[in-house]
């Protein structure tokens, strides 16, 4: 299946390993990714503070570019991209006049959005299009005995009506399904649907780091060997900021955090180096050993 690929900013900025890991698994899963060239940031909910129409127009522009490529589904690798794009699409599809207004802004570039784009995060593509059974059949190195705590990221779940959870309630359990298909054991813990704290990082660092400490400890207390997330912003906070967060807590805990395609990649037998796992701030060596992964 062919997708208009929207990698987002962070997979080419703060978490480049997410991009390489995605590329490493895409071919094996049979996903043909054609990157949409010349797109903007989704606004991540921040630009939207400067005006919702601005954010929605930038996203409509991306959708129109995907339509121009003759494709119908945009695949992203970020909970925040997913949420912001889904919400923009939801608003435009609910209000034709609004979509018309936005299309006027796109005209100058010769673009038009007809409203036919479907936006899917990698996790959704894996479950809804590749299929859990097919994924299972491709696993060559099951993550046996590895206990994995799924961390969804706010924007891939809420508001549920804009994210299609009314029609696909299973979307709230996809990470668990993928973890199981990869041979691991999903861990249920209180933090799984909460905020990672990233948006507060530079605004109220203490609160942001407290969230990181809470979630990593929660996951640990529930027996997790590692966490996994489909959101690079969650990864930046839970991994890169974790040493600071643990220092604040006075704790020496080191909870590894994997990007979703890294978890899948490990189960597909791809090397840890190719998946960029050594770029993390918190070493994932313990779980690599547990899953007997070579470099």
């Amino acid at each position: 299946m062919k997708y208009a690929f929207y990698p987002g900013c962070v997979s080419r900025g703060g978490t480049p390993e997410l991009y390489t890991a995605t590329m490493a698994i895409a071919g094996r899963l049979g996903l043909e990714l054609e990157e949409i060239v010349g797109t903007s940031c989704t606004g991540a909910g921040v630009l939207q503070e400067k005006g919702q129409k601005l954010g929605d127009t930038l996203n409509a522009r991306t959708f129109a570019m995907a339509e121009r490529m003759g494709l119908t589904t945009i695949m992203n690798i970020c909970s925040t991209c997913q949420g912001v794009m889904s919400q923009a699409n939801y608003r435009m599809l609910q209000n034709e006049a609004y979509l018309d207004e936005i299309n006027k802004e796109l005209q100058i570039e010769g673009l038009q959005y007809t409203g036919r784009i479907v936006i899917k995060n990698l996790a959704w593509v894996v479950v809804e299009e590749v299929g859990i059974e097919k994924l299972k059949s491709m696993v060559t190195r099951p993550l046996k005995d590895v206990k994995v705590a799924p961390f969804y990221g706010c924007y891939i779940l809420r508001p549920s009506w804009a994210l299609g959870l009314d029609d696909n309630p299973g979307r709230g359990q996809y990470l668990e399904q993928i973890i199981e298909a990869c041979g691991g054991e999903p861990v249920n813990f209180p933090g799984r649907t909460k905020c990672c704290g990233f948006p507060l990082g530079v605004i109220n660092e203490k609160n942001s780091l407290t969230m990181v400490a809470n979630h990593t400890h929660d996951a640990h207390d529930h027996g997790a060997d590692t966490m996994v997330t489909p959101c690079p912003l969650c990864h930046l906070n839970l991994d890169a900021q974790q040493p600071k967060a643990q220092a604040l807590r006075g704790s020496g805990l080191k909870m590894p955090v994997l990007h979703l395609p890294q978890l899948i990649g490990l189960a597909l037998g791809i090397g840890a180096k190719e998946l960029g796992i050594y770029r993390h701030m918190v070493s994932a060596k313990a779980i690599l050993d547990k899953a007997s992964v070579r470099a």
Partner: peptide
């Protein structure tokens, strides 16, 4: 910091089309 965060985000997208996490911080 809240205001500067929004302003920097907008500046970055206006400059290069995408977010610059370094500048943002």
């Amino acid at each position: 910091p809240g205001y500067r965060h929004v302003a920097s985000f907008a500046r970055s997208v206006e400059h290069s089309g995408w977010l610059n996490e370094t500048d943002l911080a």
